[in-house]
Amino acid sequence: MKQKKLGFGCMRLPLTNSQDQTSIDLPQFCKMVDTFLQKGFTYFDTAYMYHNYVSETMVREALVKRYPRDSYTITTKLPTMMLKTKDDMERIFNEQLEKCGVEYFDYYLLHCLNKANYAIAQKLDSFRFIEDKKNEGKIRKIGFSYHDNSELLDEILTAHPEVEFVQLQLNYLDWDNSNIQSRKCYEICKKHDKPVIVMEPIKGGMLAKVPEEVEKMFKSYASQLSVASWAIRFAATHENVMMVLSGMSSCEQLEDNVSYMENFKPLDEEEMNIIDKAVDTINSSIAIPCTACQYCVEGCPKRIPIPKYFELYNYFTQFGTASNSLLHYKNFANNHGRASDCIACRQCENHCPQHLHIVDNLKKISAEFDK
C-alpha cells in the first residue's frame, strides 16, 4: 500500500472532558478517521498506555470496525517501561490484538527505548519476541521508538540489524538541541539504512503556538499556511523520513494538516532560512520545553499533573501575568498534588523523553504559584 507521508497519531484524541483522558469524543474521532481516509491517508499510530489505556480500543471502534483491513495501516507499541517478566510481553501483545480488533499489526515497536528501557528489552529478549511475532505473521514490520542520545542509538542499531525502522522525535526546534539530538539521531538512522517515522513534529503543540514575532514571519511569507504546517513540512522534507505523525485533537486540526500534506511540497532553501530565524526566537521564549506526553504522570506518588503545571508556567513566563495561570493552578490543585508536594523521587525524570529536570522546575513553579 503506497502511503502519503502524514500519519494519524492517536495520543491526543478529541475529548469530551479535558480532565479525563479516557473521555474520547468517539463521534468526532470517527469523523476525523473518515476524512483522513477519504483524503488518501492510511497510517494510524497508537500505543498500549495512550489515553490511560483506551486509545487502542477507540482505534478499534473508529477505524477497525468500520473499514476493511486492507484500507489502513495500524501501528502500536510494546511498553518496555512496564515489563517485568517475559510473560508480560505475550500477555500485553495478545491484549493489544484484542483491543485493536485485528489479527496482525502492520508496524510494531518496542516503545520508548532509552538507556534504562533498552536494558529491560535486552534482559527480556524483547527484540527476539517481536521478531518471532513477525515470523508468526502477527507483525508485518518491526522497529522501536527512541528517546536518548545518538551514541546509544548507534549501539542499538549495530546490535539489532533486524529492525526495519526507527521512530524519532524530530522537529525544527529539536533538530540541533543538545539533549534531544534530532539531527544526530536522524543521521545514525541513515547510516544504518533505517527509514524514520517522526513523532512530536509540532512538539506537543508548542510549534503551533509560537511567539507573535515568529507567526508574523511565517504569515508574511505564506499567509494561507498555518503555523503548524511549517513544523510538519520541516519533518517531512527530510529524505529518509517515511512518515510524520501528528497527534490531531480536532476536525479542524486534521483538515489543516491534510490540506498541505495531500500534495506535499518540501520546504525550499528560503523557507529553511526562515525556520532558522524562528528557532532562535522560540528558544528565547520557552521556559520549560515540555511536550505534554504524560509519561511523567504515570505512577507519581503525589498525583502531580506535571505537564499541566509546566504549561501554566510557560504561559506565565511568556505573557508576564500570573492571574490566569494561578486560577487554573488552583483548580488542578483541588484534585491533584501541588507542585510543592513533590518528594523528589525523580521517577518522572527517568521517564521523561525530553530529559527535563522536572523536580527543579516544580520548585520554580511552586515558588510562583504556591506562595
Rank of each mutant, 00 (worst) to 15 (best):
L327W: 09
S226C: 05
Y107Q: 14
R91I: 11
F310I: 08
I156A: 12
F144R: 00
T76Q: 10
V227N: 15
N273T: 06
V297F: 01
A62E: 04
N177I: 02
L6H: 01
M89W: 02
A121S: 13
Q21F: 09
A292C: 11
K364P: 15
S284T: 10
I130G: 07
A278I: 01
S126C: 14
Q347A: 08
H160E: 06
K277E: 09
G137D: 07
T291N: 14
F234K: 00
L173A: 12
F93N: 04
G337C: 07
E164R: 06
I197L: 11
Y260A: 05
M1D: 09
L97S: 13
Q96W: 04
T75N: 13
Q167N: 12
L26W: 03
H336K: 11
L124G: 14
G143T: 03
V279G: 07
N171H: 09
I92Y: 07
K138I: 03
D20K: 04
I304Q: 09
V33Y: 05
V359E: 08
C348N: 04
N135D: 06
A121K: 02
I120R: 14
G320H: 03
F29Q: 04
K194S: 07
Y186T: 00
N52D: 10
P301T: 00
C10T: 03
M248V: 08
I282S: 14
S366A: 14
K203N: 12
C293F: 04
F44D: 09
N171L: 08
P195F: 01
I343V: 06
I288Y: 12
Q122M: 10
F144T: 01
N334G: 05
Y260C: 04
S223G: 07
K133F: 04
I343G: 12
M217Q: 11
S18W: 00
A228Q: 01
F319D: 03
G137V: 00
R91A: 15
A47V: 03
L170G: 03
W230F: 11
F29T: 00
E61D: 09
Y186S: 11
I274T: 05
E311Q: 15
Q122L: 10
Y118I: 02
N335G: 15
Q38G: 10
G337F: 05
L245R: 01
K216Q: 13
N331T: 09
C345M: 05
N52K: 11
V258I: 05
L362T: 02
R338W: 01
S285T: 10
D132F: 00
M82C: 15
T46R: 06
K209L: 09
E98D: 09
S284Y: 02
C345A: 04
K209G: 13
D45Y: 04
N17E: 10
N17D: 15
G7H: 04
K190L: 01
K371G: 14
V163L: 01
V59C: 14
S285A: 06
M82L: 11
L113R: 13
V214N: 08
N350Y: 03
A278K: 12
Q294D: 13
K134E: 02
